[in-house]
Design a binder for these strands. Structure first.
Lengths: 155, 155
DNA sequence: ACCTCTTTTGACCTTCTTTGACTATAATTA
DNA sequence: TAATTATAGTCAAAGAAGGTCAAAAGAGGT
């Protein structure tokens, strides 16, 4: 692992797993001290690696007894989880956010590595040709279609 | 050895071998310093000697903890077959022909059923949005990109 | 010499991470 | 209730990589 943010990301994901795989509650200052970094680095890690697109929900509270709670979105029901992702995609999606969504599906076992690579390849800027407002729209359209196929292709 | 680029190429290939023959991860600036050249020479070496066609995949990340990772992928007999398919696709391909190509890949064990479904879904008329001359062109572009990934991924 | 192809260099660009000053909010205490 | 303390959030600047592109330099061939 190459940098602090990656290390903290892994640590938090481990914490989630160790506590049943659903949720973890941390004290920002405590983690910052453990890794000897400034507290706001935790905000950076969360904002770049625990977004909705990544499949997480984050709540927090300030003041005495404050906390940050990271919850993994429900993936037990595949149909609900995929519907959730489709909602996130909406009418347009950036390549970056699309990658996050694919990453989330991979981590949740909905697709495997090769499938992830294929889907990501389809959604690259160079594959889609179009200019910007339309490109994100096309990507959204395709990704939602792919999700439908994933949903209905099994069981 | 005639020039810096060749020397660096050899060095990198040696590194790959020394580490099990599959992959190597470098810091661009570090290698540049070792060979006393500008960092961008590494990009030149990679672009001219570690391409897909040469049998390598390159990933990288910028910023703190950045890296360049070169992975060797074996290109067995599959590669000719897939190159053939890419030639068939050309600059444009109908949905029907695209389906035939996917079917062929499925029958030849290059992809499995789920992957075929995903790829076909992407290439449906409804997924691609565009009108006709452009739609076939887009489909061709995407399908060729997908074939590249299938060829040069190998997990 | 002249032309073409490859290599070398460097200025400038983009992306990702780290840090810290300042802000906002909740709980506790006076 | 007001003041104080304990947390977390925001944002922008600085830092740390890697990427691009085109001009200059070198190598071979005719």
């Amino acid at each position: 692992m190459r940098n602090m943010s990656d290390i903290i990301e892994q640590y938090l994901k481990q914490l989630i797993q160790d506590s049943g795989g659903e949720v973890v509650e941390i004290k920002r200052a405590h983690i910052a001290e453990k890794f000897d970094c400034v507290p706001s680095q935790l905000n950076y890690v969360i904002k770049t690696r625990f977004t909705n697109e990544h499949g997480y929900t984050v709540e927090s509270k300030r003041g005495g007894g404050g906390y940050i709670r990271i919850t993994k979105v429900e993936t037990h029901s595949k149909s609900k989880y995929l519907a959730h992702l489709k909602a996130l995609i909406g009418e347009g999606v950036s390549e970056r956010n699309a990658n996050h969504i694919v990453q989330s599906m991979l981590e949740n076992g909905v697709i495997d590595v090769k499938e992830a690579k294929i889907i990501n390849a389809v959604m690259e800027r160079e594959s889609l040709l179009l200019e910007l407002p339309y490109r994100d729209q096309l990507r959204a359209n395709i990704l939602k279609r792919v999700i439908d196929v994933i949903l209905y292709s099994e069981e």
